[in-house]
Amino acid sequence: MAVFRFLSAVFLLVATVALVVDATPASYGVGSFHATSLAGHWKELGPSSFEVARRGVIDAAPWLWESLIRPILDVPTFVAFGALALLSGYAGRRRRSVRIFVN
């Protein structure tokens, strides 16, 4: 359970950093708020790995890329990692202990 709580904290940190990166130009008055997608961040950090993954999935099953993977990668990064933080936080929550006394 502690692993899920740790993952929740890491995912929340990534979501916060992604939101700050997207909101910084708007706060300085340089541009407007633009939420970057997971694919946008992936292309920025590792363009060759994105292309290899995309090409590999398209070669194996083109329908999989178009119907499942691309819509997931179009989600804003802070939303995706925020959702992962909520899910892993829920999975790692402390359970209430139930005491059953049988006489």
Rank of each mutant, 00 (worst) to 15 (best):
S88K: 03
F78D: 01
V79Y: 11
A15N: 04
Y28N: 11
R70D: 14
H41W: 14
A35I: 00
R54K: 15
A53D: 12
V14S: 01
A2Q: 13
V21Y: 03
S32R: 09
R93M: 08
G31D: 15
H41R: 13
L19Q: 01
F11H: 07
D22E: 00
E44D: 06
R96V: 12
V52A: 12
S67I: 08
L12F: 04
F6C: 02
V3A: 05
G56I: 01
G56W: 00
F50H: 08
V30M: 08
S49G: 00
A23Q: 13
A15T: 05
I69H: 05
F4S: 12
R5T: 15
R94W: 09
R96F: 08
V3E: 08
L19P: 00
L45I: 02
T24M: 10
L68N: 03
A26L: 11
V3H: 06
G31H: 14
V14R: 02
A2L: 13
P76M: 09
P25W: 14
T36A: 03
S27N: 08
G56Q: 09
V17R: 06
F33R: 02
D59K: 14
G89T: 02
S88M: 12
I100Q: 08
Y90T: 11
A53S: 15
G82W: 01
E66F: 01
T16L: 12
L12D: 08
G46S: 14
L84M: 15
R99H: 15
G40S: 05
P47N: 02
L87F: 10
D59A: 15
H34A: 11
N103H: 10
T24R: 10
A83H: 05
L68G: 05
A80F: 14
N103Y: 10
S32H: 04
S32Q: 09
A2V: 09
T36R: 13
L84Q: 08
H34Q: 11
A60N: 02
R99P: 03
R54Y: 04
